[in-house]
Write a protein that binds this DNA or RNA. Structure first.
Length: 431
DNA sequence: GCTACAATAT
DNA sequence: AATATTGTAG
């Protein structure tokens, strides 16, 4: 059966074009970026026969479904009653000793709104018809093939779509509602479901987002596999989506993922770990000026490393407060200090919109000149810029002592020195 | 309205 | 393939 070919919705046409004759189901899941969004599907699988239950469960897990299995019908039903919110799809064996498929359909149909799939080792017409009559949304013949499993998510998706109320004509009342959905009950193609079957009519005009895929979800287990794969491939930096995916598929028997899924997850994962290591090193949230190092002459009054020292503010501060009467500059080996600022003017800013305020002296590097200069002042500390970030103004208020700051970033003279009008420079390095 | 995070676009 | 942007659940 060329089941899979028909299942790939819109793209199926293209697929056929490019791969004209494939009756074979080579690989139902080619990671082509074709999506089988099973990862978010939580399945309750009930089968008294463990010989078929376990393989089926494993197969489903390979396709990234989240599977809860039961061999006992009563237990399964009890579980379902309690956890109906946590299940998206029920698969129930027709021939259960305690609660058979029809009973299950009855109960579930009454108590909750879940798609129920019946499976059976036989496919007698009667069995199939009864199941459908009782509301089964699909009928699977055991052993269930992977091709079938790969597309079971569609039942869930239908449910979600109709619930979200895109178009629910008359959800109530009559049983014969969805003619297009389940009418063709010739058992073995039940799972083929619509799509191409839309030959029916309506409008090919377009809007037929009938198959919006559910969002996938990285479960803990899946993520763990992901991490293992990453580790096996070296490091976070060395692991790439394609190889990760390949590893997960081949070595860990994970299917149903696409490269994009992995790429997206990897991107987020890298971000997170980067963030983590950063905050680990810098537990003191956002300060970026810190003590630059030992300075015997100043040691006594050095503030602790962890203190929040801020010497810049945002543009809004500048506009709303006419602060910063003076600033002293000493950058890129060019010293300028002190500089009187008119109270209503702008301070020079750097690329990160920082400016100096209060009578600070700014030092770019540990140049001899500068060191001489700053040690000649009786300044409390020497600071290093850590990283560009915004810092609350409040911390700045506490400092009225001039300080020397050592910048670790590049300053452009024209950009950071006061504009034309502010020519009150004193060459202080060598006076 | 935000945040987290997957999907999609570039 | 990597990264940036968008979309969206919760």
């Amino acid at each position: 059966m060329s089941v899979s070919a028909n299942l790939l919705d819109e793209n199926s046409r293209d697929l056929r074009k490019e791969v004209p004759c494939d009756d074979e189901i080579g690989s139902p899941i080619n990671d082509d970026d074709e999506e089988f969004p099973t990862t978010s599907i939580r399945v309750l699988l009930v089968d008294a026969d463990s010989n078929s239950l376990l393989p089926m469960k494993n197969l489903m897990i390979q396709y990234s479904y989240q599977v809860t299995k039961y061999e006992d019908g009563e237990e399964a039903m009890a579980f379902l009653m309690k956890n109906k919110q946590e299940i998206d799809l029920v698969i129930w064996d027709f021939h259960m000793p305690d609660i058979n498929g029809l009973d299950a359909l009855n109960t579930i149909g009454k108590e909750m709104d879940l798609p129920v799939v019946i499976m059976s080792h036989d496919h007698k017409k009667e069995t199939v018809m009864e199941s459908i009559k009782y509301g089964a949304c699909d009928f699977l013949v055991k052993p269930v093939s992977k091709e079938v499993i790969a597309v079971l998510w569609r039942h869930v998706y239908r449910k979600r779509m109709s619930k979200s109320g895109l178009d629910k004509p008359g959800e109530s009342g009559t049983v014969e509602s969805d003619p297009d959905e389940y009418d063709d009950l010739g058992q073995d193609n039940l799972y083929q479901s619509n799509e191409e079957g839309s030959k029916n009519s309506s409008d090919q005009k377009g809007e037929k987002p009938a198959t919006k895929k559910p969002r996938m979800q990285w479960t803990t287990e899946l993520h763990h596999k992901f991490e293992v794969a990453v580790e096996k491939l070296g490091s976070l930096e060395k692991a790439f989506p394609k190889t990760i995916l390949k590893y997960m598929q081949e070595e860990m028997n994970v299917q149903g993922l696409t490269r994009n899924n992995v790429a997206s997850h990897l991107q987020k994962y890298r971000q997170n770990s980067k963030q983590k290591t950063r905050t680990h090193q810098e537990p003191q949230e956002d300060f970026f000026w810190r003590n630059a190092g030992p300075d015997a002459t100043l040691a006594a009054s050095n503030p602790p490393l962890s203190s929040n020292l801020n010497i810049h503010a945002t543009a809004s501060y500048l506009m709303n407060n006419q602060a910063a009467p003076r600033a002293s500059y000493f950058m890129n080996n060019q010293a300028a200090s002190p500089i009187p600022y008119p109270s209503n003017s702008c301070l020079p800013m750097n690329n990160n919109n920082y400016f100096m305020t209060k009578p600070f002296t700014y030092i770019d590097q540990f140049q001899q000149q500068q060191q001489q200069y700053h040690s000649s002042l009786n300044l409390p500390s020497m600071l290093t810029k850590q990283e560009p970030r915004h810092v609350p103004l409040s911390a700045m208020e506490n400092f009225d002592t001039p300080m020397i700051y050592n910048s670790s970033f590049h300053f452009d003279h024209d950009e950071y020195f006061p504009p034309e009008g502010f020519n009150n420079f004193d060459q202080i390095g060598q006076n």
